[in-house]
Amino acid sequence: MTGMARLTCRVNGEEVRAEVPVRRNLLDFLRNDLGLTGSHAGCEHGVCGACTILVDGVTVRGCLMLAVQAEGAEVVTVEGLAESGRSAALAAAFTARNALQCGFCTPGMIASALEYIDGGGGPDRAAIRAHLSGNYCRCTGYQAVVDAVCDVIGGAAK
């Protein structure tokens, strides 16, 4: 049996106190312990990007961080981004462009795209493609995702 540890952090603005196995990764904790199933496990080795979340404002792979490492941290998942309205413009653009098909990569894609936009990224298709290169999508061909990000940046500039 593995050891347990106390964990206190904030998830989507709410304080969370839990006792978790020290080997449990943050993604499993969010999904299985908190029922926040929007973040997805695609590879569990930090490559596919489907579990991308924000920890203290920075995108991280939920599968590459242990839950106990989130002690004292502010964690935001796709559910939190939607609830607060932070992802609303991107969500509207993704819908208008059909920038998702199965939707499994989408929560991570939203987090990465938001990081690009909030970081002042411009409507430069190559730069957007480079920024999103940590997020696998097997359905769309990526073009509509790039279009959607450009739409949000263009809309914000007007």
């Binding site: 929007g38 997805h40 496990a41 819908t95 208008a96 939707g103 939203i110």
Partner: peptide, 19 residues
């Protein structure tokens, strides 16, 4: 037409088997 089910997937409210 945009897909009606896109909103759910964009908010992390999908219903995949592992959920």
């Amino acid at each position: 037409e945009p897909r009606a089910d896109a909103a759910r997937l964009l908010q992390g409210r999908g219903r995949f088997v592992d959920d």
